[in-house]
């Protein structure tokens, strides 16, 4: 089962993220948890979330990049769901061996993520803490999908990203070769 943890406070206002989600929602093995929708008061049901994670063999984190990080509720989800003794630490091997795919949409153009760009660092530097979160729980880090410059790209580029995302999930558990899943507009 593929568990998509989706975090967008105002899904109706989302353009890229919504298109990505719509592209995969109908896949038979996909289960979507939209955190802001399920827990608008941040009252995350830890047992439900952990049970879903246990059933999943691929976990997808799908969200816009906010201030070089995940939206507040996904951070809170990390804090209350990925517990010591369950996700990490002694006896914490519930997620061990599962795969994790990070799908982020960003506002800046791909070129802005460079030492000479607006954001002063290449994108993989921002990827590092999120990757480490997954890896600390023993998950296998899949090559991420990033849709940069989402405010400037046209409908066709969003559609292309959506298609690529769908192919990745549809092929699962076969891990596609790198050339089949190019990181969009990196």
């Amino acid at each position: 089962m593929i568990l998509i943890i989706h975090a967008h406070p105002y899904p109706q206002r989302s353009r890229a993220g919504r298109a990505l989600l719509a592209a995969v929602r109908d896949l038979p093995q996909v289960e979507v948890h939209s955190l802001y929708d399920a827990y608008p008061d941040f009252d995350i049901d830890v047992a439900t979330e952990q049970a879903a994670l246990t059933r999943a063999d691929l976990v997808v984190w799908l969200h816009p990049l906010y201030w070089y990080s995940v939206p507040a509720i996904l951070k809170h989800w990390f804090d209350v769901v990925l517990l010591s003794g369950w996700a990490y630490g002694e006896g914490g091997d519930a997620l061990r061996g599962k795969h994790c795919l990070w799908v982020a949409t960003t506002g800046g153009r791909a070129s802005s993520f460079a030492e000479t760009g607006t954001h002063q660092l290449p994108f993989h530097e921002f990827e590092a803490p999120i990757r480490q979160t997954a890896q600390f729980c023993g998950m296998v880090w899949e090559p991420p999908l990033a849709l940069h410059g989402a405010q400037a790209v046209g409908e066709d580029e969003i559609a292309a990203a959506a298609v690529a995302f769908r192919r990745r999930l549809a092929a699962w558990p076969k891990v596609l070769a790198d050339e089949d899943s190019p990181e969009i507009a990196r």
Binding site: P9, Y10, Y36, D37, P40
Partner: peptide, 16 residues
Amino acid sequence: GRYTLEALGVDRFRAR
């Protein structure tokens, strides 16, 4: 009131 807004199609977090 929040439930009402949600039922009218407002995102749950936005209703909050």
